[in-house]
Design a protein around this nucleic acid. Sequence first.
DNA 1: CCAGTATAGTACGGATCCGTATCGTAGCGA
DNA 2: TCGCTACGATACGGATCCGTACTATACTGG
Lengths: 213, 213
Amino acid sequence: MSRTQGEATVDPRVERSRLVIRRAALEELGAVGYGAFTIESVAARAGVAKSTIYRHWPDKVDLIADAFETFHEQMVPDITPLPPRERIELLTRHVAEVFADSTFSICIPALIEGAERDPRLREFHHRYSATRSQSLIDVISEGVAVGDIPGYIDPELGALALLGPIIYRRLMSGRPFEPELTPALVETVLGPPREHPLSEPLLYKRSRSRGLA
Amino acid sequence: MSRTQGEATVDPRVERSRLVIRRAALEELGAVGYGAFTIESVAARAGVAKSTIYRHWPDKVDLIADAFETFHEQMVPDITPLPPRERIELLTRHVAEVFADSTFSICIPALIEGAERDPRLREFHHRYSATRSQSLIDVISEGVAVGDIPGYIDPELGALALLGPIIYRRLMSGRPFEPELTPALVETVLGPPREHPLSEPLLYKRSRSRGLA
DNA sequence: CCAGTATAGTACGGATCCGTATCGTAGCGA
DNA sequence: TCGCTACGATACGGATCCGTACTATACTGG
């Protein structure tokens, strides 16, 4: 019952309710966190009767998971046919912007906390994180294969080194990772761009590879 | 009142109570998170009367902050006179081990959530994070100056690229960053170690520096 | 031994939230 | 226009936790 069934819900009242409730749920999450999250507060924030929420979602976790899923469906990064290095920078910057965007950034701690407490939220959270990092891993691998990126770089660790700072700055320090730092971060991690990628040999020692889900 | 005054508390009963309560508080934090954290549950977990907790700490936040402070005082990494690169690896591995250690790792999400909600916890959290990353930044700077580390690396971003993956893996994926990955991460971020650090010139383009607190 | 004190245990009123039920209203589709 | 249904509002018993107060007990230091 928590998802819109197939095509579209007939009654516009339902659609409207679900919309404002989902929005209010994310706001509430950002305001008070996961543990203090309350159906009654969401109802008040959405200007909706408590019974209306219970009519559409069985419990707190279902509402939160559904709100996040719906929110994420709206933003898929576009795949662009560019050289690996530029795609890496684009992907990294995109994540940085999402994590700096106030409407989503605010409820990240709550999402992490929720993922720690409930298996459903955990599944969702890990799935989206894995998707993000995997695309980055793929591009780095491609860059290494093409010679655009030094061979000593482990694609998985490289992806972590690009995405990690964004999470670190958001959660461990005062201010988020400014998207403008992206080029400098890419250069620090992947080394300066090569002037003529295919004309220079690879002088680096190769690293062993590792497994990751 | 939440800290032991100066030397030592006279009555051993007090010391014993504070010890078990602090320990129970961290356990409870790891178990239920920050928002669902409850004085009564801590009392039950510690095998202590609720009034005993209120006798020593005015409220929930004070207890949590005190528990974290006391816990952190016990573990300060030792400064070792080694070449920069090895010190970097040591520092990184130390953080990785702390974040993989179950007794502390479990309540990291709660600490982050708490830091998001309360200024006192936020101050503590950011202070310790800044301390950790700053020592790493210093060593990287030294390594760059000595020529042990390529000059295109921005020390601050380099530190983020080393610490970020640890946080990322712990909070965004299923399993924590295994400390054994540290050497590979260092190599991916800083490049392969130079055979004869001082005999080779720096061929890299220099990056501009940035500000960080 | 004894006076002082920290403790365990319990009770309390107040507050909040749960999840459900009921009822009257208003918007919906046909 | 007229059923149908989602809605808002309200009430409810039950549960949990707050922060405080009180008592009796057991440990402490002198």
